[in-house]
Every structure is written in C-alpha cells, then in structure tokens.
Simulated assay, not measured.
Amino acid sequence: MERIFLLEDDEALGRGIALALQTPDRAVAQAATLAQARALLQGQDFALLILDVNLPDGSGLDLVRDLRAAGHRVPILLLTANDLELDEVTGLEAGADDYITKPFSLAVLRARVGALLRRGAAPAAEIFVQGPLRLDFARLEFRRDGAVVELSKTEQKLLRVLVENRGHTVPRATLVDRVWTDGADYVEENALSVTVRRLRSKLEADPAAPRYLKTVYGIGYRWEVTP
C-alpha cells in the first residue's frame, strides 16, 4: 500500500485533497499542525509528503529543513497561498521537490503527485545514456561520442545529482550540500558555478552538441531530458 502524508490546517481542503488522492492502492494520512506532523512522521515511512507552509504553530518549511538535515530523501510537495517568486525559491532551497500555490485544481495536484511518486520510486540508474553521452556511474567511466571524458570527483558527484533529478530544477543550496560532503565548514560561494562551468566544457564541448545542463536563474540547475 502506497502511503502519502498530508499536512494541511484547512479541514475542508485537507479532506478534499485526501479524497482526490486516495485509491485502492494508496492511503493518505493527515495532520493539521506541525506538532501533529512531527509526531506522526516518527518511525513511519511515506512515499510522498504534501506540506502546507502557513500553519497555526509555525511553518512547513521548518519541517522540510529538519527532514533534509536528518537525511530523509522522501519527495516533498509544498502547498501555500504565497505566489511570489521569492517564496518558491525559498521553498526549493529548503529542500522541497515541488511547489503549488493555492487555489489549485485537484487535477493539477494529482498530476504533480503522480510525477513525484514516479520520480521517488525510480531507482538511480548506474548507466545513463542520452544522445552522445554514456555515463557509467558504477565504473566511473564517462564518454561523449565514444571518447572518454575525464571528470574530477566533484564533477562526478554534481553530474550524478543532476542526472538523478533530471527534468527537475535542483536548488543551489541542495547541490552544495549533496556535492561537498567532506565535512568542510565553508564552501566558496562560486565553487558550484565554477564546477558547473567545467562540467559543461567537458560534456558540451562541441558547439553543435545538445545543451543538457540548464541554468535556472535565481534557483539552481536542471538536467534537461529533451534539450
């Protein structure tokens, strides 16, 4: 049974969302406050978390940050009435995977939920092939048009995170946390930009080659599925 967790303080809206998402093979557990959510999430596994941002006892963003800091990789979809770009950037940088503003249609919500569940269930491929690229993460062998491309360890980590999240924008803060994992207390502000630039120069050296690594200004980077 696939299980979704919903944190929404509006009782009517929460009931509507739960009814829209429940199926014979899918259950929805609900909470209305941060305190209830933290208690229910203890020791339980969910395929997806849907979290309201503005709550009676705090912000859902705090829960997102706590979960990511604890190493939880479960997909998270944020619900909020805030539709400013800054709010979206803040949510993504906190560790959320997607963001939807109120009011929204249940059809759109179901589509977003379905996409996140498929993404969360998909195992990370050890060999990824796209266009002229063949990326073997198990053997750490990377080729473009059959020729070996030498990547540093940092470039390999960055490439893997982007490919595993292909089609989705990964915030800069998330990339820094996932790539620079050697315990350093400080990472230079431009380290990520420099690494992205070097990776591009190696994978997209041919001017006629497809452009896979897209900059999403103000947020982060995305590996394009169909460049």
Score class of each variant (00 low, 15 high):
F5H: 10
L6C: 00
D9T: 00
A12F: 06
A12S: 02
A12M: 01
I17Q: 06
A18T: 02
L19Q: 05
L19E: 13
Q22E: 15
V28H: 04
A31H: 00
T33N: 05
L34Q: 00
Q36F: 11
Q36E: 15
A37N: 01
A37P: 06
R38P: 02
R38D: 06
Q42F: 10
D45S: 15
L48N: 03
L49P: 01
L51I: 08
N54D: 12
L55Y: 07
P56G: 08
G60K: 07
V64D: 11
V64A: 11
D66M: 10
A70Y: 07
A70K: 13
H72Q: 15
R73F: 10
R73G: 08
R73H: 13
V74C: 14
V74I: 15
I76H: 03
I76A: 05
D83V: 05
E85H: 13
L86K: 13
G91Y: 11
A94V: 12
G95L: 09
D97F: 01
I100S: 09
P103D: 06
S105I: 02
L106S: 04
A111H: 10
A115F: 06
L116H: 09
A122I: 03
I127T: 12
F128P: 08
G131Q: 06
L135K: 08
F137P: 02
A138I: 06
A138D: 00
E141K: 13
R143S: 13
G146K: 01
V149D: 05
V149S: 09
E150G: 00
K153N: 08
E155A: 11
E155D: 02
Q156N: 04
L158I: 02
E164G: 07
N165M: 03
A173Y: 04
A173V: 11
T174Q: 13
L175W: 04
V176K: 03
A184Y: 07
Y186T: 15
Y186Q: 14
A191M: 05
L192G: 12
V194P: 01
R198N: 14
S201G: 08
S201N: 06
L203W: 04
L203H: 11
P207D: 14
R211M: 02
R211A: 01
L213I: 15
T215Q: 12
V216R: 15
Y217H: 15
G218F: 14
R222C: 14
E224M: 12
E224P: 06
V225F: 01
V225R: 13
V225A: 10
P227F: 12
P227V: 09
